[in-house]
Protein backbone atom coordinates (compact mmCIF):
# COMPACT_ATOMS: atom_id res chain seq x y z
CA UNK A 1 0.00 0.00 0.00
CA UNK A 2 1.23 3.52 -0.84
CA UNK A 3 1.18 6.27 1.75
CA UNK A 4 -0.71 9.48 1.22
CA UNK A 5 2.09 12.00 1.67
CA UNK A 6 0.10 14.70 3.38
CA UNK A 7 -1.80 12.56 5.90
CA UNK A 8 0.54 9.63 6.42
CA UNK A 9 -2.49 7.40 5.93
CA UNK A 10 -2.14 4.35 3.77
CA UNK A 11 -3.93 4.29 0.40
CA UNK A 12 -6.64 1.80 1.18
CA UNK A 13 -8.10 -0.62 -1.32
CA UNK A 14 -9.60 -3.23 1.03
CA UNK A 15 -13.40 -3.31 0.89
CA UNK A 16 -14.97 -1.31 3.69
CA UNK A 17 -16.61 -2.56 6.91
CA UNK A 18 -20.36 -2.45 6.41
CA UNK A 19 -23.38 -1.33 8.40
CA UNK A 20 -21.36 0.49 11.09
CA UNK A 21 -23.90 1.44 13.76
CA UNK A 22 -24.54 1.74 17.48
CA UNK A 23 -26.71 -0.77 19.30
CA UNK A 24 -27.81 0.68 22.63
CA UNK A 25 -29.86 -0.77 25.47
CA UNK A 26 -30.35 1.26 28.68
CA UNK A 27 -27.50 3.42 27.35
CA UNK A 28 -25.04 0.56 27.11
CA UNK A 29 -23.74 1.76 23.75
CA UNK A 30 -21.96 -0.84 21.64
CA UNK A 31 -20.59 -0.20 18.16
CA UNK A 32 -21.34 -3.00 15.69
CA UNK A 33 -20.38 -3.60 12.07
CA UNK A 34 -20.19 -6.32 9.45
CA UNK A 35 -16.97 -7.59 7.92
CA UNK A 36 -16.01 -6.21 4.50
CA UNK A 37 -17.60 -8.16 1.67
CA UNK A 38 -15.69 -11.23 0.52
CA UNK A 39 -12.80 -10.99 2.99
CA UNK A 40 -13.21 -14.19 5.05
CA UNK A 41 -10.90 -14.83 8.03
CA UNK A 42 -8.02 -12.74 9.34
CA UNK A 43 -9.48 -9.24 9.08
CA UNK A 44 -8.48 -6.93 11.93
CA UNK A 45 -10.13 -3.66 12.87
CA UNK A 46 -9.48 -0.46 14.73
CA UNK A 47 -12.02 1.97 16.11
CA UNK A 48 -12.17 5.67 16.82
CA UNK A 49 -14.91 7.97 18.02
CA UNK A 50 -15.61 11.70 18.30
CA UNK A 51 -17.94 13.99 20.19
CA UNK A 52 -20.11 15.91 17.76
CA UNK A 53 -19.09 19.56 17.64
CA UNK A 54 -15.55 18.86 18.91
CA UNK A 55 -12.88 18.24 16.29
CA UNK A 56 -10.84 15.39 17.68
CA UNK A 57 -11.16 11.76 16.69
CA UNK A 58 -10.14 9.63 19.66
CA UNK A 59 -8.80 6.11 19.22
CA UNK A 60 -10.19 3.32 21.38
CA UNK A 61 -7.09 1.31 22.46
CA UNK A 62 -9.11 -1.69 23.65
CA UNK A 63 -10.51 -2.02 20.14
CA UNK A 64 -7.22 -1.81 18.25
CA UNK A 65 -6.28 -4.77 15.99
CA UNK A 66 -9.35 -6.73 17.10
CA UNK A 67 -10.90 -9.48 14.97
CA UNK A 68 -14.40 -9.21 16.49
CA UNK A 69 -16.99 -6.97 14.87
CA UNK A 70 -18.15 -5.00 17.89
CA UNK A 71 -16.65 -2.54 20.36
CA UNK A 72 -18.20 -1.35 23.62
CA UNK A 73 -18.10 2.46 23.65
CA UNK A 74 -20.45 2.87 26.63
CA UNK A 75 -17.77 4.53 28.69
CA UNK A 76 -16.86 6.97 25.96
CA UNK A 77 -20.48 7.87 25.19
CA UNK A 78 -21.80 7.99 28.76
CA UNK A 79 -22.60 11.72 28.69
CA UNK A 80 -26.05 11.67 27.13
CA UNK A 81 -26.08 15.44 26.76
CA UNK A 82 -23.59 14.98 23.94
CA UNK A 83 -23.86 13.29 20.58
CA UNK A 84 -21.24 11.09 18.94
CA UNK A 85 -19.79 9.57 15.81
CA UNK A 86 -17.73 6.38 15.68
CA UNK A 87 -15.68 4.95 12.86
CA UNK A 88 -14.10 1.60 11.93
CA UNK A 89 -11.18 0.71 9.62
CA UNK A 90 -10.31 -2.82 8.46
CA UNK A 91 -6.88 -4.37 7.80
CA UNK A 92 -5.91 -7.59 5.99
CA UNK A 93 -2.54 -8.78 4.64
CA UNK A 94 -1.09 -5.28 4.67
CA UNK A 95 -4.10 -3.75 2.96
CA UNK A 96 -6.62 -1.46 4.64
CA UNK A 97 -10.07 -0.08 4.09
CA UNK A 98 -11.41 3.46 4.42
CA UNK A 99 -12.73 4.68 7.74
CA UNK A 100 -16.46 3.93 7.81
CA UNK A 101 -18.57 6.10 10.08
CA UNK A 102 -21.82 5.75 11.97
CA UNK A 103 -24.70 8.16 11.66
CA UNK A 104 -24.78 10.76 14.44
CA UNK A 105 -25.58 8.90 17.66
CA UNK A 106 -27.75 10.52 20.36
CA UNK A 107 -27.70 8.26 23.45
CA UNK A 108 -30.84 9.90 24.82
CA UNK A 109 -33.06 9.19 21.84
CA UNK A 110 -31.29 6.28 20.15
CA UNK A 111 -31.21 3.85 23.07
CA UNK A 112 -33.67 1.02 23.65
CA UNK A 113 -35.14 0.39 27.08
CA UNK A 114 -35.58 -2.89 28.90
CA UNK A 115 -38.99 -3.56 30.45
CA UNK A 116 -39.47 -2.66 34.12
CA UNK A 117 -39.11 -5.16 36.97
CA UNK A 118 -42.51 -6.23 38.35
CA UNK A 119 -43.14 -7.10 42.02
CA UNK A 120 -46.55 -8.34 43.15
CA UNK A 121 -48.37 -8.89 46.41
CA UNK A 122 -52.01 -9.68 47.03
CA UNK A 123 -54.86 -9.57 49.52
CA UNK A 124 -58.25 -11.26 49.19
CA UNK A 125 -59.61 -8.68 46.76
CA UNK A 126 -56.67 -6.73 45.41
CA UNK A 127 -53.20 -7.01 44.04
CA UNK A 128 -50.42 -4.47 44.53
CA UNK A 129 -47.94 -3.93 41.74
CA UNK A 130 -44.56 -2.26 42.27
CA UNK A 131 -42.59 -1.41 39.14
CA UNK A 132 -38.89 -0.63 38.95
CA UNK A 133 -37.39 1.06 35.92
CA UNK A 134 -34.09 -0.39 34.73
CA UNK A 135 -30.86 1.39 35.58
CA UNK A 136 -28.78 3.35 33.12
CA UNK A 137 -25.62 1.46 32.12
CA UNK A 138 -22.88 2.19 34.67
CA UNK A 139 -19.13 2.02 34.47
CA UNK A 140 -18.71 -0.59 37.20
CA UNK A 141 -21.01 -2.71 39.39
CA UNK A 142 -20.18 -0.56 42.41
CA UNK A 143 -20.56 2.63 40.43
CA UNK A 144 -23.36 5.06 41.18
CA UNK A 145 -26.75 3.75 40.06
CA UNK A 146 -28.82 6.10 37.92
CA UNK A 147 -32.40 5.08 37.29
CA UNK A 148 -33.76 5.75 33.82
CA UNK A 149 -36.49 7.63 35.64
CA UNK A 150 -33.90 10.33 36.31
CA UNK A 151 -32.87 10.38 32.68
CA UNK A 152 -36.45 10.54 31.36
CA UNK A 153 -38.55 12.66 33.72
CA UNK A 154 -41.64 11.95 31.58
CA UNK A 155 -41.30 8.19 32.02
CA UNK A 156 -44.61 6.31 32.46
CA UNK A 157 -45.65 2.69 32.76
CA UNK A 158 -48.29 0.80 30.80
CA UNK A 159 -49.57 -2.14 32.85
CA UNK A 160 -51.65 -5.10 31.68
CA UNK A 161 -53.57 -7.21 34.23
CA UNK A 162 -55.14 -10.49 33.11
CA UNK A 163 -57.71 -12.55 35.04
CA UNK A 164 -56.52 -16.08 34.26
CA UNK A 165 -59.97 -17.56 34.90
CA UNK A 166 -62.13 -15.21 32.88
CA UNK A 167 -59.36 -14.11 30.50
CA UNK A 168 -60.53 -10.53 31.09
CA UNK A 169 -57.66 -8.04 30.69
CA UNK A 170 -57.28 -4.45 31.94
CA UNK A 171 -54.77 -1.83 30.85
CA UNK A 172 -53.50 0.99 33.04
CA UNK A 173 -51.16 3.89 32.28
CA UNK A 174 -49.46 5.26 35.40
CA UNK A 175 -46.77 7.82 36.13
CA UNK A 176 -45.70 6.66 39.56
CA UNK A 177 -44.39 3.13 40.05
CA UNK A 178 -47.09 1.57 42.22
CA UNK A 179 -50.57 0.40 41.31
CA UNK A 180 -53.22 -1.26 43.46
CA UNK A 181 -55.93 -3.08 41.50
CA UNK A 182 -59.03 -3.38 43.76
CA UNK A 183 -62.37 -5.29 43.62
CA UNK A 184 -60.84 -8.54 42.40
CA UNK A 185 -62.14 -12.07 42.94
CA UNK A 186 -60.72 -13.95 45.90
CA UNK A 187 -58.72 -17.11 45.20
CA UNK A 188 -58.08 -16.18 41.59
CA UNK A 189 -54.86 -16.02 39.58
CA UNK A 190 -53.95 -12.74 37.93
CA UNK A 191 -51.03 -12.16 35.58
CA UNK A 192 -49.33 -8.79 35.18
CA UNK A 193 -47.06 -7.46 32.46
CA UNK A 194 -45.64 -3.95 32.21
CA UNK A 195 -43.96 -1.67 29.69
CA UNK A 196 -42.05 1.59 29.97
CA UNK A 197 -43.36 4.47 27.88
CA UNK A 198 -41.57 7.81 27.46
CA UNK A 199 -43.61 10.46 25.65
CA UNK A 200 -40.81 12.81 24.64
CA UNK A 201 -38.53 11.70 23.24
CA UNK A 202 -40.83 8.93 22.11
CA UNK A 203 -39.32 5.68 23.45
CA UNK A 204 -40.97 2.55 24.81
CA UNK A 205 -39.72 -0.79 26.01
CA UNK A 206 -41.28 -4.10 25.15
CA UNK A 207 -43.72 -5.58 27.65
CA UNK A 208 -42.14 -7.58 30.45
CA UNK A 209 -42.82 -11.26 30.76
CA UNK A 210 -45.99 -12.09 32.72
CA UNK A 211 -45.77 -12.29 36.51
CA UNK A 212 -48.68 -14.14 38.12
CA UNK A 213 -50.13 -14.13 41.62
CA UNK A 214 -53.32 -15.42 43.20
CA UNK A 215 -55.60 -13.36 45.45
CA UNK A 216 -56.12 -14.93 48.89
CA UNK A 217 -59.05 -17.23 49.39
CA UNK A 218 -62.19 -15.70 50.93
CA UNK A 219 -61.98 -16.77 54.60
CA UNK A 220 -65.73 -16.38 55.15
CA UNK A 221 -66.67 -18.68 52.28
Amino acid sequence: PRTAAHTGELYCSLPNPRNVHFESINMKNVLHWSAPEGTGEGVLYKVKYSVYGIGKWIRKPECRNINRTWCDLSNETADYEEQYYASVKAFLNGMCSDWMETARFNPLTDTKLDPPMVNLSSTEKSISIILTAPEKWKRSPDGESVSLLQVYPGLQYNVSVLNKKTKKRWFFSISNNTLVVPWLEPGTAYCVSAQIHVTTPLIHSGFSKEYCIATLKDKTA
Binding site: S50, Y52, G53, I54, Q83, R104
Partner: peptide
Protein backbone atom coordinates in the same frame (compact mmCIF):
# COMPACT_ATOMS: atom_id res chain seq x y z
CA UNK B 1 -37.33 11.87 14.01
CA UNK B 2 -38.69 11.15 10.54
CA UNK B 3 -36.01 13.28 8.81
CA UNK B 4 -33.14 13.17 11.30
CA UNK B 5 -30.94 10.61 9.49
CA UNK B 6 -31.47 12.33 6.13
CA UNK B 7 -30.76 15.85 7.36
CA UNK B 8 -27.78 14.92 9.55
CA UNK B 9 -26.27 12.97 6.64
CA UNK B 10 -26.29 16.25 4.67
CA UNK B 11 -24.06 17.85 7.32
CA UNK B 12 -20.47 16.61 6.87
CA UNK B 13 -18.98 18.97 9.46
CA UNK B 14 -18.33 17.03 12.67
CA UNK B 15 -16.06 19.58 14.24
CA UNK B 16 -18.58 22.37 14.78
CA UNK B 17 -21.93 22.51 16.50
CA UNK B 18 -24.31 25.46 16.32
CA UNK B 19 -26.10 24.83 19.62
CA UNK B 20 -23.93 22.67 21.86
CA UNK B 21 -20.32 23.90 21.66
Amino acid sequence: TAIKANIQARDPIRTLSILSH
